[in-house]
Write a protein that binds this DNA or RNA. Structure first.
Length: 628
RNA sequence: GGGCCCGUAGCUCAGCAUGGAUAGAGUGCUGGACUUCUAAUCCAGUGGUCAAGGGAUCGAAGCCCUUCGGACCCGCCA
């Protein structure tokens, strides 16, 4: 029994009572009471029936409350009608606590079968392989990775993809820099290759185009060769992008993200997918050849309320546009067309998760990374293009909601942080730009955070050895960053401020991790395993009951989060758990309790909290250190 | 001009999908709690015409309309 089951039971019984009384069917709500003095669970059915029955809400609630007496189970102590019109329920804690405690120790606690094992694809990261990841990319990775974890918990069969645009303009820019701009192929000592490519080669090369038209000409040539493949330049490009990707992935792994497959855009371009998709779009009359106006000679998508204006897919010179390249990829992700790729192992990630890559060589290995639903995590500046893709896919495969753009607002830099990049913004925050060098690298943020947390952990735990200190500091740094990136709504802009990010108090990842460390410490010091097959009547304070209630809500939060593709719900849940535990910790002594039975009951609660929190945190990709 | 998003306490944000009881946190500021299971903590105080106006409703922070303020998108670039 968890809170969700209890709510279901109440809902079911109320419906039975309504049927018995011959009341009309209404969509009433059964949920947690807004204030504890009203009880634990409330129902608004009285308000909804007031009009059709022409009675006062409180009278209706009263009559239902009377009828409910005979349905009272081991989990409901009292049912009463409030004069306001609400129907309120008070939980029988004796039954409820025991039930929650025993559920919560199960390995799969929190699991909710929303997905029924259906296949779902989450694509995230997808950073151009010409630079290091910056703080804006981190938001994408954290949203995608967290959502994938939550969907797995909600019983979806999740495949995680990372799309690598290795034949685009941004890659061409650094190739130009290396081949014609005089940049050395190797970075200076102590600089990661991706940082070198992004911070130095890319920024400097694009800056030079304006004054050096020769370089700009080279770019067009390089881009063409990258798309065609096989040339010496294309091979060089392949080496460079793979080196950058390797470094980018290190940062992703550092953040706790793993993938199932990397897709190279060049493979899609060189496969027959595009031709097939194009023919299909022509035959289905999704696109047509424009013969007049500014788009004469182009294949375009006709405008409608969604696309707003005609959108060119094939230029008059026969070359596909940016958006056109996304369409075959989208059809591939949904398994609409025959898969032209073979697969080979790229690397084995942590937890033995294999990362595959697409290849056009016949390796004899065919795999399937498609889904009935595809979630593409891209920032909301791409909304318009994503809408067009969604529409085309919808025309291909009429299943509703098979292609979902999970958009989120961008990360901007605070005025103060911009100042450290020599940018004066008059107090305003500023959009990041890889090309202009306006960004803060993810590795840098983690390094600074790590150094700060290292000092703190060492001060508090001087007896710990060096490798452990470093490990804990890294876990806290990642926890702090991931939590900061996920805790607010997707459509809120995050203004990143370096100084502020170092604050580790209050509603932060480390606050939550700290609560975990405290709970571990109590269990360690108790020196024994809690015995769960007992009565929990001793857990009768408000602090203990509140903690149990929150522990009992885990699966509701998973369901809510997965249904709404809203990862922050789990972040808030972790925070609520930690707040409730810290309050319990301050007010209730566990090891110094009056009797062995009470000590055991409280140890069970601590254990239950610890297990639930670690599971919830793992959905956020946040590790919980035992000491900090 | 069209589209999309945001506006809730000094600051950063929950709550809005599915209207309902007294609008919640963090941070800041003021004060208090460590010989105690770790003070990255806890407790108390401070702080809000929920941008403004209108509408439908028994009832609106939430739904509808208008206005204002801010961000972003609208290329045969990617």
């Amino acid at each position: 029994m968890t809170l969700r089951l209890l709510l279901d039971e109440i809902r079911f019984n109320i419906q039975r009572i309504l049927d018995d009384l011959g009341y009309p069917t209404v969509g009433f709500d059964v949920s947690e009471a807004s204030h504890s003095e009203f009880g634990d669970v409330s129902c608004n059915v009285g308000f909804l029936l007031a009009k059709p029955l022409k009675k006062k809400p409180s009278e209706i609630a009263e009559s239902i409350a009377n009828k409910y007496q005979k349905y009272k189970s081991a989990f409901i102590a009292e049912v009463n009608a409030n004069s306001s019109g609400y129907l309120n329920f008070i939980v029988n804690y004796r039954g409820f606590i025991k039930s929650v405690m025993q559920s919560s120790v199960r390995q799969d606690y929190g699991k909710f079968d929303l997905g029924k094992n259906s296949k779902i694809v989450v694509e995230h990261t997808s950073v151009n392989p010409n630079k290091a990841l910056h703080i804006g990319h981190v938001r994408n990775i954290v949203i995608g990775d967290t959502m994938a974890r939550i969907l797995s918990k909600a019983c979806y069969d999740v495949s995680i993809l990372n799309y690598v645009d290795d034949s685009g303009l941004q890659v061409a820019d650094i190739i130009v820099g290396f081949r014609y701009g005089g940049f050395a192929n190797e970075p200076p000592q102590n600089q990661k290759f991706d940082h070198y490519c992004g911070d130095v080669v890319y920024v400097s090369t694009t800056e030079r185009y304006e004054k050096e038209p020769i370089l700009a000409e080279k770019r067009t040539m390089v881009l063409k060769e990258l798309e065609e493949g096989n040339s010496e330049i294309a091979k060089f490009g392949d080496i460079i992008t793979r080196r950058v990707l390797e470094e980018q992935l290190k940062t992703c792994w550092r953040l706790g993200a793993t993938y199932d497959c990397v897709n190279f855009e060049s493979h899609i371009v060189r496969s027959r997918l595009w031709k097939t998709v194009l023919e299909k779009m022509k035959s289905m009359e999704i696109i047509y050849l424009e013969n007049k106006g500014k788009n004469a000679g182009c294949w375009v998508i006709k405008s409608d309320s969604i696309t707003e204006e005609d959108k060119v897919l094939i230029r008059s010179n026969g070359i596909a546009t940016y958006i056109a390249k996304d369409i075959p990829y989208a059809t591939w992700k949904l398994g609409i067309l025959e898969d032209p790729f073979y697969y080979k192992q790229y690397i084995v990630q942590k937890n033995d998760r294999i990362l595959w890559e697409t290849t056009l060589e016949n390796t004899g290995t065919k795999l399937n990374f498609t889904g009935d639903t595809v979630i593409t995590v891209i920032d909301s500046r791409q909304s318009r293009l994503q809408k067009i893709i969604t529409k085309i896919i919808h025309d291909f495969k009429s299943a509703e909601k098979s292609y979902v753009h999970l958009g989120y607002e961008s990360v901007t830099l605070s005025s103060d942080t911009a100042k450290t990049l020599n940018l004066e913004t008059e107090g305003k925050s500023v959009q990041m730009s890889g090309r202009k060098g306006i960004y803060v690298n993810a590795d840098y943020v983690l390094d600074v955070l790590g150094a700060r947390t290292y000092d703190e952990v060492k001060k508090r735990n001087p007896e710990l050895d060096e490798p452990l200190l470093v490990e804990i500091a890294e876990q806290i740094a990642v926890g702090a960053l991931r939590y900061a990136m996920i805790k607010q709504d997707l459509d809120k802009i995050i203004t990143f401020d370096m100084t502020e990010s170092l604050s580790l108090e209050g509603d932060t990842g480390p606050y939550i991790q700290y609560a975990y460390a405290r709970s571990v410490r109590i269990l360690e010091k108790s020196g024994k395993a809690p015995e769960f097959d007992v009565s929990f009547d001793a857990l009768n304070t408000i602090y203990e009951r509140n903690l149990v209630k929150i522990i009992g809500k885990f699966d509701i939060q998973v369901e809510d989060s997965a249904k709404n593709l809203s990862p922050k719900i789990i972040a808030r849940y972790c925070y609520d758990l930690a707040v409730s535990f810290n309050s319990f910790y301050e007010h209730i002594k566990v090891l110094a309790a009056e009797s062995p039975d009470i000590i055991n009951a409280r140890l069970c609660l601590v254990w239950s909290f610890k297990e639930t929190l670690v599971k919830a945190l793992s959905l956020l990709g946040i590790d919980a250190p035992h000491r900090m």
